Simulated assay, not measured.
Amino acid sequence: MGLSREKLMKAVSGQMPEKRWKHTLGVMEKSVQLAEKYGADPVKADLAAILHDVAKYWPVSEMEAVIRENGLNEELLLHDKQLWHSEVGAFVAQRDYGVDDPEIINAIRWHTSGRVGMSLLDKVICLADYIEPGRDFPGVDHIREQAERSLEEGLIAGFDSTISLLISQRRVIYPLTMLSRNDLIAHL
């Protein structure tokens, strides 16, 4: 990767509001803690956390164009736009920032939905995104408590929270989130 960590942080922070950058800093902090606790690479966790929301505030039309023009997962376009930034962010991490480590790219790609067969780093970034210190939503303390027990228990609690919220709002649930949750339970 060509950019230093500091230059990367400056480049990424410039693409989002200050509040979202504070969230990213929290995800960086929590991902390194989780990586150290559960045996993932803290340097990779830090890098994936810096980049996890790099495309979050891109215009929807630009995210859609990146997905369509680069052969990315077009199924996402049938689902909530909140899912798109992870796919686009993984692409941008490679294209614009020279990240070539597939483990880091995948952790960025799957941080919103999870996936069947999540890697250790996937789990760390996804869970850190749920429980970073600035998060304050109903049920976050339960997710944090479960995260102390295991990455898997924390993620199951996180996915349960997301799925319950979507059900209460009568919104569509992205199928991969359900499959990710079920896979975690099956492998406990």
Results as ranks from 00 to 15, higher is better:
residue 55 A to I: 00
residue 151 L to F: 08
residue 1 M to A: 15
residue 86 S to P: 13
residue 109 R to W: 14
residue 165 L to Y: 13
residue 172 V to D: 05
residue 3 L to E: 10
residue 106 N to C: 12
residue 41 D to S: 08
residue 5 R to E: 15
residue 64 E to I: 12
residue 166 L to R: 01
residue 182 N to C: 06
residue 96 D to A: 14
residue 170 R to G: 06
residue 157 A to V: 11
residue 22 K to I: 08
residue 21 W to H: 03
residue 138 P to F: 09
residue 74 E to P: 00
residue 157 A to I: 03
residue 16 M to R: 00
residue 112 T to V: 15
residue 78 L to K: 14
residue 34 L to M: 13
residue 45 A to T: 07
residue 61 S to W: 11
residue 116 V to M: 04
residue 82 Q to R: 13
residue 58 W to C: 00
residue 113 S to N: 15
residue 46 D to A: 07
residue 14 G to H: 03
residue 5 R to Q: 13
residue 17 P to N: 09
residue 130 Y to N: 05
residue 167 I to K: 06
residue 173 I to R: 01
residue 151 L to V: 10
residue 10 K to H: 04
residue 152 E to Q: 09
residue 162 T to M: 00
residue 10 K to W: 05
residue 140 V to H: 10
residue 44 K to I: 04
residue 70 N to F: 09
residue 42 P to D: 09
residue 175 P to V: 02
residue 136 D to V: 01
residue 186 A to R: 09
residue 41 D to K: 01
residue 109 R to V: 14
residue 33 Q to L: 11
residue 94 Q to N: 15
residue 126 C to V: 11
residue 115 R to N: 02
residue 97 Y to N: 05
residue 61 S to D: 15
residue 131 I to Y: 04
residue 9 M to Q: 12
residue 27 V to T: 14
residue 91 F to I: 03
residue 68 R to H: 04
residue 188 L to H: 13
residue 50 I to V: 13
residue 5 R to Y: 08
residue 154 G to T: 08
residue 134 G to I: 03
residue 76 L to H: 14
residue 166 L to M: 02
residue 103 E to P: 00
residue 136 D to I: 02
residue 118 M to K: 02
residue 155 L to G: 04
residue 158 G to I: 07
residue 34 L to V: 07
residue 43 V to Y: 13
residue 151 L to C: 09
residue 181 R to N: 06
residue 59 P to S: 14
residue 103 E to T: 05
residue 104 I to Y: 09
residue 188 L to T: 10
residue 46 D to Q: 10
residue 48 A to V: 04
residue 123 K to H: 09
residue 164 S to I: 06
residue 62 E to V: 15
residue 159 F to S: 08
residue 101 D to Y: 15
residue 184 L to V: 04
residue 146 Q to I: 00
residue 90 A to N: 10
residue 14 G to T: 09
residue 165 L to G: 05
residue 45 A to M: 07
residue 76 L to R: 11
residue 139 G to T: 01
residue 142 H to F: 12
residue 25 L to F: 02
residue 138 P to M: 02
residue 162 T to E: 01
residue 139 G to R: 08
residue 111 H to V: 08
residue 26 G to D: 07
residue 103 E to C: 02
residue 74 E to V: 06
residue 180 S to Q: 01
residue 146 Q to D: 00
residue 57 Y to T: 07
residue 67 I to F: 08
residue 110 W to H: 09
residue 35 A to I: 11
residue 80 D to M: 05
residue 58 W to F: 13
residue 128 A to H: 00
residue 95 R to P: 08
residue 162 T to F: 00
residue 103 E to N: 11
